[in-house]
Write a protein that binds this DNA or RNA. Structure first.
Lengths: 192, 192
DNA sequence: CGAGGCCTTGACCGCGGTCAATGCCCGTGG
DNA sequence: CCACGGGCATTGACCGCGGTCAAGGCCTCG
């Protein structure tokens, strides 16, 4: 029953040192939530952000362009966090959506509580720093791939670096993640 | 003579609280450097990163695609920091170059010393966090603009949000920053 | 005054998007 | 259990944004 709390603690302990009493405190700020497939967890324009931890299932973060297609910025499988980080940082309305791709078991913590932990748990600062660093590296690599590579190369890179995404998700989402149309992805797959 | 040190301290004090003795310590890790126009400060493939502070002049961070054109990821004018952050974080070779766009008065601090400050100056953690947050927001906004907007829109957005870049830098660099060819930028400017 | 870099303009073309038709798979209800 | 409908994937036709190549003009600096 407490599996997901054990998962998140495992995740945290891999990154920072926390005493048993601190673990108690930290966990007390995380709340469980069960999301249905396709459920929208964060709407575009929403403020008051939350950070999610995926115990089981899958979340994606995406934004729309004016024509109505969406681009997926990040995909979180089991044992990963997902946040609409820009909005989390700035406190401004989110440009991004968060959606459950599958039925998912989640934990979440509000932005307020997260920042509160920064004040009461000395090592939480480091946890946040590591999280930010990872998010930064991730996004910058994506930026580079969009800017320097064409569709076929991005697809091959994804196959190398993150085949799970291609195997587990419908083409539609893979295309959204690569920022190409579903048709183009289909043609790419056809030609080996 | 100490102008640039005053500039960096002003920058720091705007963001975190530091005691006079801490200021002493922090400054002792920053070293001045005068860069010539077009000088490359960080080569692609280089490890052992440094963070630069621009007192006067301008730096740009860019990377190459395989065809040899470059894309400018970030432009730092006076009173801004510039780092090849991914490499700084991961310790791996930089995918990015840093170049002086104009003759520039700089300060720099090595990655080692920067991390050392994290240990000896309590509030430096916060300074780094704020820096990371800003860099993250910046990059994510750029990512979104590349992915959701076309050339003309990106140009108009840049004119709104950062006209200095357009006014102060040669077209070549503006094009590189927008990730379009010089010819396309020229055509865009022509048609209002 | 000459040379080299930068900007502009035109001709051309290819990647990848859109639209549309068709096929496939799967869940749902008669 | 089968028929139907809806969502997803595939395939073809078409086309437009923006890149490349090339030529010409302009400005700057030695």
């Amino acid at each position: 029953m407490n599996d997901i709390f054990e998962q998140v603690i495992f995740y945290i302990k891999e990154r920072i040192q926390v005493s048993p009493s601190e673990v108690e405190i930290i966990l007390s700020y995380f709340k469980p939530y069960r999301a249905q497939k396709n459920e929208i967890l964060i709407q575009q324009g929403q403020i008051g952000q939350r950070t999610f931890f995926v115990g089981k299932g899958c979340l994606r973060i995406f934004f729309n362009n004016e024509q109505g297609q969406d681009t997926t910025r990040y995909i979180a499988f089991e044992n990963n966090f997902a946040t609409s980080l820009v909005s989390f940082i700035t406190g401004e309305p989110s440009q991004e959506f968060i959606q459950a791709v599958e039925n998912s078991d989640l934990l979440y913590i509000t932005q307020q509580d997260f920042y509160h932990l920064l004040e009461i748990i000395p090592s939480w600062d480091k946890f946040y720093r590591i999280y930010l660093e990872k998010a930064y590296v991730n996004n910058t690599n994506r930026l580079m791939s969009f800017v320097t590579m064409e569709a076929r190369e991005r697809y091959h890179l994804l196959l190398q670096q993150n085949p799970t995404i291609v195997m587990r998700l419908p083409n539609k989402l893979v295309a959204s993640y690569l920022n190409i149309s579903q048709e183009t992805l289909s043609r790419l797959k056809g030609k080996i």
